[in-house]
C-alpha cells in the first residue's frame, strides 16, 4: 500500500491527463462521423443526417445511445472470450497511440524518444483486434474479412515504414516533437511530395477506409469481421476505427504538414495557438479522407495487393535510397554540416 500512497498524486495526474486526451478524442470521433456522413452526402447531392438536433448534429450520439441499449448477441458457436476481447483491444490500442501525439509545443502526454516507433508498433498491433474478431466469430464472412484485413495491413505497413524512414532521415530523431520542429523552414510535404502521396494512400489502406475497405466489403462479405457483432461491441469497433483514422490524419499532419506550426511564421498567424493549427490540419486531412471515400470505387483484392507490393514498396524503397543519397552528397543530413 505504501507504494500506492506515495505515488497517489502522480497516479491521479496521469489519470487526469488520460481523461484530457480521451474526452476530446471522443468528441472528435463524434464530429468526424458526422462530417464523414455529411461530406459523403454532399458529394452525392443528398442532405445527410439533418433531423436529430440542429443540422443533424445529434445524429451520432443518438445512434450511439441506440447501440448501447441494444442487446449484445453472442453467437452460439463463437469463442466467447476472444469474441468480446477483440473490440476492447481495437479501441484500447487506438486510444493508446494518442499518448505520444504532440498537439502543441510541449503539450504531449508522453514525450518519449521513440515516439514514431511507438505509434508504428501500436498501429501494427491493430490487426489483432480484427483477426481475433474474425476467428472468434466462427463464421465464414468474418473469417474472410479477417484474413483480407491481416494481409492488407501487413502489406501496407511495409511501405508506411519506408516512408517514415525517409522523413526520419531528414529529421535525425524519432521524437514526434522534434519531427515537427524540423519542419520550421519547410514542411516536408514539399520536398517529399511523392512520399506524402504514398503515405496518404497507405494510411487509407491501413485504416480499412474506402477504396480499400475490402475487409468489410458489404457487396461480398456482408460486413466482414463485424458481421456477428451488435450493440456495444460493435460501437467499440466503430469508435476504434474512427480513432485510428484520426490518428492517421494526425500522423500525416505531424510527418508532412508541420504539426502545430503555422504556415508562415509572421505575426497574425503565429499568435494563434498551436493546437488550433494542429486541429485545422487534421480536419483538412480528414476532409481528404472523406472525399476519397465519396468518389473512389472499391479496389479489387488483387489490385490492392499489386498496388502495395509492386508499386508502393519499390517506390518507397527507391525514395529511401534517393533521399539518403541527396542528404549525404549535399551534406544536408542533420548533424553533417
Amino acid at each position: 500500500m505504501n507504494v500506492l500512497q506515495s505515488n497517489f498524486f502522480e497516479l491521479i495526474t496521469i489519470i487526469f491527463y488520460c481523461i484530457l486526451i480521451f474526452v476530446p478524442l471522443l468528441v472528435g470521433v463524434v464530429l468526424a462521423l458526422y462530417a464523414d456522413r455529411k461530406i459523403w452526402a454532399a458529394v452525392q447531392k443528398r442532405r445527410g443526417p439533418n433531423v436529430v438536433g440542429p443540422f443533424g448534429l445529434f445524429q451520432v450520439p443518438a445512434d450511439g445511445l441506440k447501440f448501447i441499449f441494444k442487446e449484445i448477441i453472442l453467437p452460439d458457436s463463437a469463442d466467447k472470450t476472444v469474441f468480446l476481447i477483440a473490440p476492447i483491444i481495437t479501441l484500447a490500442l487506438s486510444i493508446a497511440a494518442w499518448a505520444v501525439i504532440p498537439v502543441q509545443a510541449g503539450v504531449v502526454l508522453a514525450n518519449i524518444n521513440v515516439g514514431i516507433l511507438y505509434i508504428f508498433a501500436i498501429s501494427s498491433l491493430g490487426v489483432y483486434g480484427i483477426l481475433m474478431a474474425g476467428w472468434a466469430s466462427n463464421s465464414k464472412y468474418p473469417f474472410f474479412g479477417a484474413l483480407r484485413s491481416a494481409a492488407q495491413m501487413v502489406s501496407y505497413e511495409v511501405s508506411i515504414g519506408f516512408v517514415i524512414v525517409t522523413v526520419l532521415m531528414c529529421v535525425g530523431s524519432l521524437n514526434l516533437s522534434e519531427i515537427v520542429l524540423a519542419q520550421k523552414n519547410i514542411w516536408f510535404f514539399i520536398p517529399l511530395f511523392p512520399m506524402f502521396i504514398v503515405f496518404f494512400i497507405s494510411a487509407l489502406a491501413e485504416t480499412n477506409r474506402p477504396p480499400f475497405d475490402l475487409p468489410e466489403a458489404e457487396s461480398e462479405l456482408v460486413a466482414g469481421y463485424q458481421t456477428e457483432y451488435s450493440g456495444m461491441p460493435f460501437v467499440l469497433f466503430l469508435f476504434g476505427e474512427y480513432i485510428n483514422i484520426l490518428l492517421m490524419c494526425a500522423m500525416t499532419t505531424i510527418l508532412f504538414l508541420g504539426g502545430w506550426l503555422p504556415p508562415i511564421d509572421v505575426y497574425p498567424l503565429n499568435a494563434i495557438p498551436g493546437f488550433v493549427w494542429f486541429i485545422l490540419k487534421v480536419t483538412l486531412v480528414f476532409y481528404m479522407f472523406a472525399m476519397v471515400k465519396a468518389f473512389v470505387p472499391r479496389y479489387r483484392y488483387d489490385q490492392l495487393m499489386r498496388l502495395g507490393w509492386k508499386v508502393f514498396l519499390p517506390l518507397s524503397l527507391l525514395a529511401v535510397v534517393f533521399t539518403s543519397s541527396i542528404l549525404f552528397f549535399f551534406k544536408l543530413a542533420p548533424g553533417m554540416s
Binding site: V114, L117, A121, S124, L125, L131, V154
Partner: peptide, 18 residues
C-alpha cells in the same frame, strides 16, 4: 522494446496466427 513489438508481434506473430 519497440522493435520487438513491430517485428515479432506486428509481423511474425500475425503470420503465425494466420
Amino acid at each position: 522494446a519497440m522493435i520487438l513489438i513491430i517485428v515479432y508481434v506486428g509481423a511474425v506473430a500475425v503470420l503465425f496466427l494466420f
